[in-house]
Each structure stands twice: as C-alpha cells, then as structure tokens.
Design a protein around this nucleic acid. Structure first.
Lengths: 198, 198
DNA sequence: TACAACATGCATACCGGTCGGTATGCTGAT
DNA sequence: ATCAGCATACCGACCGGTATGCATGTTGTA
C-alpha cells in the first residue's frame, strides 16, 4: 500500500463525512473508522483538521466541478448549448438521494465562509471560477447574437450561480429531485429570456 | 423580572448565537453567558437544546418573516408591486455586516434539514408559506393581466424563493452587500420577464 | 387572618462522553 | 543506521444534560 493511496483514502472518507455532517461536526474518529486507519496516518499526511478540510475543497470538490462542468464549458464552441445541456443532464440524472445531503460546495460555503477565512478564500475561488466560465459563455453567446447586447453578462452569471445553489438548497430541504427539476427548469427559462426577441 | 421575560431573553440570545455559529456549534454556555442566566433557567423553560432551536425557528425566524413580508403581501391589493418594492427595500437597506452571517432561515435549512426531521418540518413550513404567498401574488398578477397566462405560478414562486436564498448565500460568501444587490436585481428582472410582451 | 404546604423560578455543582491534537513506539525499506 | 509510514495511548477542553438546593410567591385550610 503506497502512501499516496493512504492519503487518497483519507481524503475520500473525509469528503464523504464532511458531506454528511458538515465540516465542524465531521468527526476525525469516524473518518478513520471508515478507512481502517488511525490518527497516526492522518496527522502524518495532514497537519490539522482544517488542512484536511481545505484539501477536500481543493482536491475533491474543486477538481470534480472542473472536470464535470468548467473544462467542458471552456472548450465548447457553443458554450450556451453546453451549459443548457448540462443543466438538463443534472435535472434528469440526479435522484432523490442526491439531494439528501445537498451540494457539497454550497454546504461548505454556508457553514464555513463566515467563521473561517481560509475556507472562505478557497471556496470563493471555486465560485468565482464558476461565475467566470458562465460569464464567458454568455459573452460568446453575445458575439453569436444568441444573447441580447444589453445583457450584463457578469451580473447574469453571478445570478445563475447563486440561483443554481439556491435550487440545490431548496431541493435539499424538500429532499426531492422533483423540486430541483422544477427549479432548474425556471433557471433555464431565465437563461433563455436573455436571448433576443424572436 | 417575570418568567416570560427570562424566556424571551434566552430565545433572543439563542437566536443570535445560532445565527453566528449554526445550531450544532451553538454553545449553551455561550448563550447563558450572554444573558447572565444559568442552566437552571434554560432547562426550566426548554426541555432540550433541540426544543430551544425549534422555538427560535417558530418564534423568532418565522415570526419575523411573517411580519416583514408575508402578512403585508397577503393584505396587499397590488401584491406584485409590494413584492418588488420589498426586494428593492432589502437591496437598499441591508449593509455588509448583514451578510457576514447570512440569512438565518437559509443557514438552518442547509445545516439541519438533512440531519433532523423536526427541524426540517418546521423550516419547510416557513419556506412553504413563503412560496404560497408569492404564488398567490403571481396569481393575482395574472388576473390583473400583469403576468402572462401561460406562467406556472407555483413553479415560478418556488424558483423565486430558491433564488432569493441563493442570493443570500452568495452574498454571504463574498460578505458583500453589492453582490446581494446585483443578484437581487437579476431576480427582479426574472419577475418582470413574466409580464406580457409590451 | 394566620400558618402550613406546595409549586414556581431559578442557581450551583457535577456527570459521562466526545472532541482535536500530541507524544511515543514500532516496523520495514533504503 | 536512518527515516518515512503508520499504530497506540493519552491529554485537557468542552459538550449537553441532570440532580439538587434554595428562595419567593400562591394556595389550601382552620
């Protein structure tokens, strides 16, 4: 068993525990119990619980979003279609149990941003990257005349990300994929309402 | 000092502590220290920490929302104007420090809904009442021909509440009233986009 | 009206359990 | 012989909750 694999096991277990309980309520003991490792292993690879949490943010949450959404959007020729298609995919694929625990990113933002500067910074980097990617997608849409020229792409992108997380939050409370579907459909309508009058 | 006043002091202190730290991280000792009271007082008026939290939800958070928004909307002749005016008021009046801690309702929803059934139920009652009030405002707007007849008022109301909380969440992460202003302005645009073509 | 009996409204002291973190020891590879 | 890679044992701090004590009314009874 290589050291890197041990580190990865701890990271994944921590990500799952944090997703379930939140960061503050996440128990080091639970994380270790689910891996079969002990504190020696954890504190060999991570100096503190906070460092472990930040590693989860950067190496699990951020990486996941980059791969699923941000990179495809950056490389797309028709990013507007890619964005709408991705929203549509999420609507169809995510099931009820996905909303039991909510969006890992949104969860940490709500919990940690006001009480931990480092978390706030790392999380905001993700949200900002997300916003910028959507903003550029809207900009490209403007050059293609698929978005009205008077639209403030930066503000619209900020709203889209915010509302997206808001949809997650509502679906999490209802624990209902149907709620998420309905919400995201309205968000799609908002994006479409940015198009020029037919 | 009447018993009711003691209870109220505990409630307010608990609401503030929960707003700052979240429910799970909220410390009974901190709450009591800020009031000058002791555990005897608290456990005389509330059987448990959970009961105290639920009382905060019902008697502080819910009551506040009812008085500020829900009741005025229910009684309004032009609820659509009342809604837009309220959103505008919030945009202008709330300052940066209001977003340091975020929306008390949204905070608890994100933290407690997945891990405590009682919290989930009580919080969902508030969200549902909020949604219904907005839905009825949109319905009234339809009878007044200020909202298109093809609009799904229930779905639109659900999205408005979700996005509203999403705006809070983003502003909380950025700790910026300007972010909230920009976001809520886009939400206003969404509401206006439900109107018939001019 | 006088006094006992009792309940209300707290304060104080204490409990077991869990937390994150550390100091130390062992083991195998280099 | 050294050091990375872990395991084990232990620590003080804090947690929510409880048991008990003690005033201050409030009520029942003669």
């Amino acid at each position: 068993m290589t050291p890197d694999l041990t580190r990865e096991k701890i990271l994944q277990a921590a990500a799952a525990e944090i997703h379930r309980q939140g960061f503050q309520a996440a128990s080091i003991a639970h994380i270790l119990a689910s891996t079969g490792l002990t504190k020696g292993a954890l504190y060999h690879h991570f100096p503190s619980k906070q460092a472990l949490g930040l590693a989860v943010v950067d190496e699990v949450i951020r990486k996941g979003l980059e791969e699923r959404l941000l990179n495809p959007l950056r490389e797309a020729n028709e990013p507007l279609d890619t964005l709408l298609a991705y929203m549509d995919n999420r609507i169809r694929e995510l099931t009820d149990d996905a909303f039991e625990l909510g969006c890992p990113l949104n969860n940490l933002v709500q919990e940690m941003s006001p009480i931990d500067e480092a978390f706030k910074t790392h999380l905001d980097h993700i949200l900002h990257a997300w916003q910028v990617v959507i903003e550029q997608a809207l900009n490209k849409g403007q050059t293609q005349n698929r978005i009205r020229q008077d639209v403030d792409c930066k503000a619209a992108a900020l709203f889209i990300v915010s509302a997206w997380e808001g949809c997650w939050g509502m679906a999490k409370n209802r624990q209902s994929a149907q709620t998420f579907r309905s919400c995201m459909a309205q968000l799609s309508q908002f994006v479409l309402s940015l198009a020029p009058a037919a």
